[in-house]
Amino acid sequence: MTIEILQTNKLLASCEAALAERYTVHRLHEAADPDALLADIAGRVRGIAGQRASRELIGKLPKLEIIANFGVGYDGIDTAAARERGIRVTNTPNVLNDAVAEITIGLMIALARRIPQADRFVREGRWLEGGYPLLTELNGKTVGILGLGRIGKEIAVRAQAMKMRVVYHGRRRQPDEPYVYYDALTDMARDCDWLVLIAPGGKGTEKIVSRQVLAALGPQGCLVNMARGTLVDEAALVELLANGGLGGAALDVFEKEPQVPEALFGLDNVVLSPHQGSATHQTRNKMGALVVANLDAHFAGEPLPSAVA
């Protein structure tokens, strides 16, 4: 008999095909009656593949052994509940570092040079009426990175290639890194031209970028959020962008996505992106393969490629 797993949300086609080849997959997100499905299979499910696993769901699966998260961020998984039961949790790190770092720099350039707005300027025929305003460059500016992990380091390398100065803030100083460390986020924001967020989501970082931090970044400063919308006081962000208290923002994530504050739509000092940090064919295929590899390793009794709990 094949091992039975629960898929909690839609995954990449290549990942779903690989899972179906190896396991009996129950797709909770497609079930007409999710509760009825769980009641039927609860005693047989040994693994979860997906991005969500609440304490309630975990509690309904007495045979659950492993949760293979699709994504590097695993704030959708109740790791405390998993730990209490000895359930392993994995994620998909490293394979998305380059893709996220690339789009981070891309969004920074798009915001600095107002590329989306310039495109509209040409399409709407306004160039015939006069030239586009002078803007700014990345070179010579200071970028502060909140969260100098794997992706943060890749962003730092690319920022240096753009001739930017890199500083960072995190839980602790990393002695082997050459960048200046700030132990207070507000102080770093005050000294930066750009503030890039690439820290994990969850209760520990909720609204860590407060109104005070945004005000410290100031009218000439720009925020780039590649992490989670919950890191930012979104109401304060919208207000400061609208009244000039903050220079600009490039946002790939939002607090209640896909809902985006409508007040942002009319602002020219904002570039908006639909949470596409890792959204390339290459990266998503690698992420899916790592989900499968973690499940395969667990059920074969081998070390997990990327365990987080």
Rank of each mutant, 00 (worst) to 15 (best):
Ala32Gly: 10
Pro34Glu: 11
Pro34Trp: 11
Pro34Cys: 05
Asp35Gly: 15
Ala39Lys: 15
Ala42His: 12
Arg44Leu: 13
Gly47Trp: 08
Ala49Trp: 05
Ala49Pro: 05
Gly50Ser: 04
Gly50Pro: 06
Ala53Gln: 13
Ser54Cys: 04
Leu57Asn: 05
Lys60Pro: 03
Leu64His: 03
Glu65Asn: 07
Glu65Met: 11
Glu65Lys: 12
Ile66Phe: 01
Ala68Leu: 01
Asn69Thr: 09
Phe70Tyr: 15
Val72His: 12
Gly73Pro: 01
Asp75Asn: 06
Asp78Arg: 04
Ala80Leu: 11
Ala80Pro: 00
Ala81Lys: 03
Arg83Phe: 00
Arg85Cys: 01
Arg88Gln: 09
Val89Met: 02
Thr92Phe: 03
Asn94Met: 01
Asn94Arg: 13
Val95Arg: 03
Asn97Arg: 15
Asp98Thr: 08
Asp98Ala: 10
Val100Met: 10
Glu102Met: 09
Glu102His: 13
Glu102Asp: 15
Ile103Met: 09
Gly106Thr: 05
Leu107His: 00
Leu107Ser: 08
Met108Cys: 04
Ile109Asp: 03
Leu111Gly: 02
Ala112Ser: 11
Ile115Phe: 05
Pro116Leu: 08
Ala118Gly: 08
Asp119Leu: 14
Asp119Lys: 15
Phe121Val: 13
Phe121Asn: 06
Arg126Glu: 12
Leu128Arg: 15
Leu134Pro: 05
Leu135Ala: 10
Leu135Val: 07
Glu137His: 14
Leu138Ile: 10
Gly144Asn: 05
